[in-house]
C-alpha cells in the first residue's frame, strides 16, 4: 500500500490558542487528504497576516507573498502552469482592504483559482485595528472609538465581480468547511469562500459564541439550489444569491451561495487565442535548443518580416 502523504508540516503553529485559523487549517488539510492532491502540483499562495502564515503549516508548495498581493502572484503561477492546483489564503484586510482591486480582477477573469478568506473583522497581527468587514459603529476591544467606516459585503462583492463559485463557511464548522473547500477546488473557474473566523484576542464582538447562535446552513432548506443548471438560469440564481448575501446579524447563512460553470474560465478564453494552451503553456513551452534560439536566422527573418526591408539596388 502506498504511504500516505502527511499534509501537515512539522512546524509549530504559532496562532493564539482558540484562534479560528486552527479550524480552517484542519479543514484544508482534511480536504487535501480526501482529494488526494499531489503536493508537488498544489500551491498555497498567501498574503500577509496571521492567516497568511498557513502555507508553512501545510505540506504542499507554499508561497507566502506580500500584503494584499496573493491573488496576482497566484495568477502568474497558475497562468504559467495551468496544471497546478492553486489556492489563495488571506485575511479580510488583505483581500478586501489593500488587495481589493486584485480580488475584483480575479472575478472578472474567472481564472481557475480558489480564494479562501479568513474573515475575522480585525487586523490581528497589528493588534486589532478595524478591517473592511467590521460593520459601522462596532467597537471591538482594541478600538479607541467605534468603527467609523462601513463594512463591505464579501459575498456580494464576489458575486458582483464575477466569481463563479461563491460560498461562506465557518471556521469551527470544520467538516462543513472541508466540504466547501473540496467543492471549490473541484470547481472550474474562480471560487471564493468567505470563512467567518473568531479572533479570540482582538474581536470580542464577533465571537465563537456569537457565531454559534447566528449561523445556519443554507443546505438545511431543501429548496435552496445555488447551482446554475442551464445557462438561462444564471440571472435568476444570481439574484437569489444576492438577496441571500444580504442576510447578516441574528441569522447568518453558511454554505454555497452561487455556482455557475457556464462562464468560460480564463484558461478557456486563452485557449481560443493561443490554441495549444493550456497543454503547451509558459512553463513547458520550448524556448531554447542547447542554449540557442529555437529559430534559425532565416526563420527569425520570416517571423518578423514586417520589420525587414530588403534594399532594392
Amino acid at each position: 500500500m502506498e504511504r500516505k502523504w502527511d499534509y501537515k508540516t512539522s512546524l509549530w503553529v504559532d496562532w493564539c490558542p482558540g484562534c479560528g485559523n486552527f479550524g480552517i487549517l484542519t479543514a484544508v488539510v482534511k480536504a487535501f487528504e480526501e482529494l488526494g492532491l499531489d503536493p508537488s502540483k498544489t500551491v498555497i499562495v498567501s498574503g500577509i497576516g496571521c492567516s497568511s502564515k498557513i502555507p508553512h503549516f501545510v505540506n504542499v508548495n507554499g508561497v507566502h507573498t506580500l500584503h494584499g498581493r496573493a491573488i496576482p502572484f497566484a495568477m502568474g503561477i497558475k497562468l504559467a502552469n495551468p496544471e497546478l492546483t492553486v489556492i489563495v489564503h488571506g485575511g479580510d484586510g488583505d483581500l478586501l482592504g489593500i488587495g481589493a482591486g486584485h480580488f475584483v480582477a480575479l472575478g472578472r477573469r474567472n481564472l481557475d483559482i480558489v480564494v479562501i478568506m479568513h474573515n475575522n473583522g480585525v487586523y490581528g497581527l497589528t493588534k486589532g485595528q478595524a478591517s473592511p468587514t467590521l460593520p459601522l459603529g462596532v467597537k471591538t476591544k482594541a478600538l479607541a472609538k467605534p468603527n467609523i467606516q462601513q463594512a463591505v459585503n464579501p459575498i456580494l462583492l464576489a458575486l458582483a465581480s464575477g466569481y463563479t463559485f461563491v460560498a461562506r463557511g465557518y471556521a469551527f464548522e470544520s467538516t462543513h468547511l472541508k466540504n466547501l473547500i473540496k467543492m471549490a477546488i473541484k470547481h472550474r473557474g474562480a471560487a471564493f469562500i468567505d470563512v467567518l473566523q473568531p479572533c479570540i484576542t482582538f474581536n470580542d464582538v464577533f465571537t465563537a459564541e456569537f457565531y454559534r447562535k447566528a449561523i445556519y446552513k443554507l443546505d438545511d432548506d431543501p429548496s435552496w439550489d445555488p447551482v446554475v443548471r442551464k445557462p438561462e438560469e444564471a440571472r435568476e440564481k444570481l439574484l437569489k444569491s444576492i438577496e441571500k448575501s444580504l442576510e447578516w446579524g441574528d441569522r447568518i447563512p453558511i454554505g454555497v451561495f452561487y455556482v455557475n460553470e457556464y462562464v468560460l474560465t480564463f484558461e478557456e478564453r486563452l485557449n481560443k487565442r493561443l490554441y495549444k494552451y493550456p497543454a503547451i503553456n509558459p512553463s513547458n513551452a520550448t524556448i531554447e535548443i542547447n542554449g540557442k534560439s529555437i529559430l534559425s536566422q532565416q526563420e527569425f527573418e520570416e517571423l518578423f518580416k514586417d520589420y525587414i526591408v530588403v534594399v532594392e539596388r
Partner: peptide, 20 residues
C-alpha cells in the same frame, strides 16, 4: 489591473518556470 499585479504576477509566472 495595476502595476502591482503586473510585477507580482510576473514573479508568480517565474516561480512556475516561465521566463517572465
Amino acid at each position: 489591473e495595476d502595476e502591482i499585479a503586473a510585477i507580482c504576477s510576473a514573479i508568480g509566472a517565474s516561480l512556475s518556470g516561465a521566463r517572465s
